[in-house]
Simulated scan of single mutants.
Amino acid sequence: MVIFEVSIVMRYAQGGGLTAERRAFRERLRIQAAERFAHGEENAVIARDLRVSVRSVQRWRKAWSQGGERALVSTGPASLPLLSDELFAVLETELDKGPVVHGWPDQTWTLQRHGWSVQVPARRAVERDEAAVAGWVKETWPRVEEPRRRSGHGSSSKTRPGSR
């Protein structure tokens, strides 16, 4: 039996980092900014024209002033895979066996990369009575829900003249 403990740190909820196309797009923006740095343009003008934050342009200008245009070239993804292709194949084999085999109580595990997707059940009971739920929402919920806005003594709401 093969046991893996995988710890993945992702910067983005969507699955980690920028796509290759998005990285290339950002690099083109930085190169355009570098050309404008060379012409002495101000950060705020560059940021507005390129539709980026002034802070980003400030970081780019600092990197450019220290290392030239080469300092603005993308160096690829922030992190590289930690598993070799061979180990990843073993991991996929284990994932194919399912979470229950590995001690997980249900089917809710996931890997967003390499074709694995979120597996979350709908969480609706088979015995669910839609008519009873609709009746509860219509009749009971309005009685138990607290009012969102209170008016009267001590309230900041005002009555318009002629509205009473």
Rank of each mutant, 00 (worst) to 15 (best):
Met1Tyr: 10
Met1Leu: 13
Val2Pro: 06
Ile3Thr: 11
Phe4Met: 11
Glu5Pro: 02
Glu5Gln: 13
Val6Trp: 06
Val6Thr: 06
Val9Pro: 01
Met10Gly: 10
Arg11Tyr: 08
Arg11Ser: 11
Tyr12Met: 09
Gly16Ile: 01
Gly17Ala: 05
Leu18Phe: 10
Thr19Arg: 06
Ala20Asn: 05
Ala20Val: 13
Ala20Gln: 12
Glu21His: 10
Phe25Glu: 15
Arg26Met: 14
Glu27Ile: 01
Arg28Pro: 00
Arg30Lys: 12
Ala33Lys: 00
Glu35Thr: 06
Glu35Ser: 08
Phe37Asn: 01
Phe37Ala: 01
His39Thr: 07
His39Ala: 13
Glu42Gly: 12
Glu42Phe: 06
Val45Thr: 06
Val45Arg: 04
Ile46Asp: 00
Ile46Cys: 00
Ile46Asn: 00
Arg48Met: 03
Leu50Cys: 01
Arg51Glu: 07
Arg51His: 07
Arg51Met: 05
Ser53Pro: 00
Ser53Lys: 08
Val54Thr: 09
Arg55Cys: 02
Arg55Met: 03
Val57Trp: 00
Gln58Lys: 08
Gln58Asn: 08
Arg59Thr: 02
Arg61Pro: 00
Arg61Ala: 00
Lys62Gly: 02
Ala63Asn: 13
Ala63Cys: 05
Trp64His: 06
Ser65Cys: 05
Ser65Tyr: 03
Gly67Leu: 03
Gly68Ile: 02
Leu72Tyr: 00
Val73Asn: 07
Thr75Asp: 14
Pro77Glu: 14
Leu80Pro: 01
Leu80Phe: 14
Leu83Trp: 09
Ser84Cys: 09
Ser84Glu: 07
Asp85Cys: 05
Phe88Asp: 13
Leu91Val: 06
Thr93Gly: 11
Leu95Glu: 03
Asp96Leu: 09
Asp96Ile: 06
Pro99Phe: 03
Val100Asn: 04
Val100Glu: 10
Gly103Arg: 02
Pro105Cys: 08
Asp106Thr: 04
Thr108Asp: 05
Trp109Asn: 10
Thr110Phe: 09
Thr110Leu: 11
Thr110Pro: 00
Ser117Ala: 14
Val118Ala: 11
Val118Cys: 09
Gln119Glu: 11
Ala122Cys: 04
Ala122Met: 06
Arg123Leu: 11
Arg124His: 09
Arg124Phe: 08
Arg124Tyr: 07
Ala125Glu: 14
Val126Asp: 13
Val126Pro: 06
Val126Thr: 12
Val126Met: 07
Ala131Ile: 08
Val133Ser: 09
Gly135Arg: 15
Trp136Gly: 11
Lys138Trp: 14
Glu139Pro: 02
Thr140Leu: 14
Thr140Pro: 02
Trp141Arg: 15
Arg143Val: 07
Arg143Pro: 02
Arg143Ala: 14
Val144Phe: 12
Glu145Asp: 13
Pro147His: 15
Arg148Phe: 15
Ser151Leu: 15
Ser157His: 14
Lys158His: 14
Thr159Lys: 14
Arg164Leu: 13
